[in-house]
């Protein structure tokens, strides 16, 4: 702080450190949340299984009026465990597609109980009205089964992966997803290098190093935490356009928890910054008092 030759480089390095801290926090956050495990955790922790089950129930109750097939044929056989399995499979396939840039293909797991229930309903109904099964009957039966799997697929693809893949979003994510590990290592290393440079510039006065690092931490914390607080306070994520209950729940929950995590990290960053500035002040005061004693 004494000379312009240390002040100017310190300012530049401090600004660089602010962006390094923000970047590192962002990359590490992305790395921790963009995994199939955390995607499934969002699903399991927010009661999405019950939401899917309820939505399927109301869908089939409504469809019963036009198809004539009672909703119980479906709802009794699309169990919670089956929904878990289908959602997990869909998420795993989605992340596999993103990591190796391969085609996204998801077909719900085979549900023999459901197929048997549809078979039974059709045969019982045909028998009750004296209808002899023919080609048309088989067609209708196959179509009912196909439709059942299509509906399960659309309800269990909670992250809209098929749609993201069709619109080329997954391919774009895929092009950067593979580098996330390396990028996070580079970000941490660059932050460390900037810290070392800041130390070298302020080598003669350790309190200045505390000061500049503290200022960077405090400012990066404010820059990171304020937008997060705004997003959370205004309920911004509630305006998410897709209102299908299961999709809305997972997307908004994932975004909210990621924002909360980032906000907490940034508040901690602010706290570290304040502590370092206090440490700087304490070092200066201690230095002055020891010199005064001499």
């Amino acid at each position: 702080m004494r000379k312009i030759t240390t002040y100017l480089p310190s300012i530049i390095l401090s600004i660089a450190l602010v962006f390094c801290i923000l970047g590192t926090a962002g990359v590490l956050l992305a790395k921790s949340i963009l995994t199939s495990e955390s995607a499934y955790k969002v699903y399991s922790e927010n009661g999405v299984r019950d939401i899917i089950s309820d939505s399927l129930g109301s869908y089939y109750r409504d469809k019963a009026n036009t198809t004539g097939i009672p909703s119980e044929v479906y709802t009794e056989n699309i169990t919670g465990d089956y929904i878990d399995l289908a959602v997990k499979d869909c998420i795993d396939r989605g992340f596999a597609s993103v990591s190796d840039n391969s085609e996204f293909q998801f077909t719900p797991p085979e549900n023999t109980a459901l197929e048997t229930a549809i078979d039974d309903f059709f045969s019982d109904y045909a028998e009750s009205i004296g209808y002899t099964p023919d080609e048309e009957y088989e067609k209708k039966l196959d179509s009912a089964k196909d439709n059942a799997y299509k509906v399960i697929k659309s309800y269990c693809d909670i992250y809209k992966m098929e749609s993201l893949y069709e619109h080329g979003v997954m391919q774009k994510i895929s092009s950067v997803y593979g580098y996330l590990g390396i990028v996070s290592k580079i970000a941490v290393s660059v932050t460390f290098v900037v810290l070392v440079l800041l130390f070298l510039v302020n080598f003669k006065e350790i309190s200045s190093w505390f000061y500049w690092t503290g200022v960077s931490c405090l400012i990066s914390g404010i820059i990171g935490a304020v937008p997060c607080a705004y997003l959370l306070k205004t309920g911004y994520f509630k305006s998410f356009s897709i209102k299908e209950p299961q999709v809305f729940t997972v997307f908004t929950s994932a975004m909210t928890s990621a924002t909360e995590l980032f906000e907490k990290t940034m508040i901690a960053d602010c706290a570290v910054g304040v502590m370092l500035i206090i440490l700087c002040a304490a070092t200066i005061i201690a230095g002055r008092s020891s010199k005064n004693k001499k």
Binding site: S239, F240, P245
Partner: peptide, 8 residues
């Protein structure tokens, strides 16, 4: 913004 509602 005009869709600020929770379907649940």
């Amino acid at each position: 913004d005009n869709l600020k509602s929770d379907p649940l």
